[in-house]
């Protein structure tokens, strides 16, 4: 139950879960501590969240493994071991070999490199796009807003997976960067709609009104008050988008619509491993495992970041991590649920 204990009164302490005991309003006698920079504060809060920290460590390790392992791994992904076809994992081939004698470890690391880079780039592109478009549409309303909503509706009817599949013959044989760009261009709409919905509510907040009445320019209000107050949402969404982009990339590559041979990504590896998943499981399991672990880690980190960034969230300054984690999880779930629900309502 998330009952606010302090249910009486006019909301003097209403913002703080857990009642008056956890409130620490600045009392007149408290020694003023030095101003901690925003970034430091966020880092400190994030560090208190064990799951998120583990997630971050996993991501860092995955990046390190993907980009550093070629330096010391026994085989490169282009080498073929003609003595060993389809051998199971061993001392020399850590993840076994493929049917033409490729070293699975080297291949998986190469695929991971590609998938990670693509995920990061797409997450960045699509989140920035959605923040800009969504906040603009939400703040100004009118035709900008209507046009955007129409685009989003269209995307619901025409999933980006379908568009990219159709477009895939066009970038066959071209650089994978085009693929990245297209992926980014077609995955901002849903987040933009959520951002727009939040902008609608933020626009009516008294501090935004206050800024307007003091003569602040609209774009400055967007940059100073609206976007920072959605930071938690944007960060969660950026991470979720990274995860989604990796899944989309691997999915398209799985069908041969994404990264093209001879280049490999986790998707192409999983695709070629699927047929023999039962007989030669290492071909399938290793790339799948890395994919799932990465996406999972990204999602967990997204949640942790939300908590760290929001000064009102529970996890920030509490000693009891366990309880804090519970509370932030609720808050996060609410944020999640509200977002699409909001979007849905706006849609109507």
């Amino acid at each position: 139950m998330t009952v606010t204990i302090d249910s009486d009164g006019s909301g003097e302490h209403a913002n703080t879960p857990g009642g008056s005991a956890s409130v620490s309003p600045v009392d007149a006698g408290a020694p003023g501590d030095l101003r901690t920079s925003r970034a430091k504060l966020v880092v400190r809060r994030f560090a208190r969240n064990r799951n998120a920290l583990i997630g971050l460590v996993v991501i860092v390790l995955l990046y390190a493994a993907a980009f550093l392992s070629p330096l010391f791994a026994p085989w490169s992904y282009t080498e073929l071991d003609y003595d060993n076809f389809l051998v199971s994992p061993s001392g020399s081939h850590w993840f076994g070999t493929s049917k033409v004698g490729e070293d699975m470890f080297a291949l998986v690391m190469r695929g991971l490199q590609k998938s990670l880079t693509i995920g990061l780039l797409v997450g960045l592109i699509s989140t920035s796009l959605s923040a800009i478009v969504g906040a603009t549409a939400g703040y100004f309303g009118g035709w900008v807003d209507r046009a955007m909503m129409w685009l989003v509706d269209l995307l619901l009817v025409l999933p980006s997976f379908l568009i990219l599949a159709i477009l895939s013959p066009a970038f066959k044989g071209k650089t994978w960067l085009i693929f990245v760009l297209l992926l980014g261009l077609f995955s901002w709409m849903i987040t933009a709609r959520i951002v727009r919905g939040m902008t609608f509510t933020l626009r009516e907040r008294e501090y935004v009104k206050a800024a307007r009445f003091m003569g602040q320019a609209p774009w400055r209000i967007i940059v100073k008050h609206i976007v920072p107050n959605m930071a938690s949402l944007l960060i969660i969404d950026a991470t979720v988008n990274v995860g989604a982009a990796v899944i989309a990339e691997t999915g398209l590559s799985y069908f041969g619509f994404g990264v093209q041979p001879p280049d490999v990504s986790l998707g192409t590896l999983i695709a070629s491993g699927t047929e023999s998943a039962q007989t030669f499981p290492w071909l399938f399991l290793f790339p799948s495992m890395f994919l799932v672990v990465f996406v999972l880690a990204v999602n967990v980190v997204g949640d942790g970041l939300r908590d760290a960034i929001d000064p009102n969230s529970a996890g920030g300054r509490r000693k009891d991590r366990r309880k804090a984690r519970k509370e932030y999880q609720d808050a996060k779930d609410k944020a999640r649920a509200n977002a699409p629900a909001l979007a849905g309502k706006e849609a109507s």
């Binding site: 501090y207 206050a210 009445f213 003091m214 920072p228 107050n229």
Partner: peptide, 23 residues
Amino acid sequence: SRREIRRDMQVVFQDPMASLDPR
């Protein structure tokens, strides 16, 4: 002149929770 007037006229809102940017 609109800017100047904004300077001479200021506002205080009702809800102390919502009138300050929490960030």
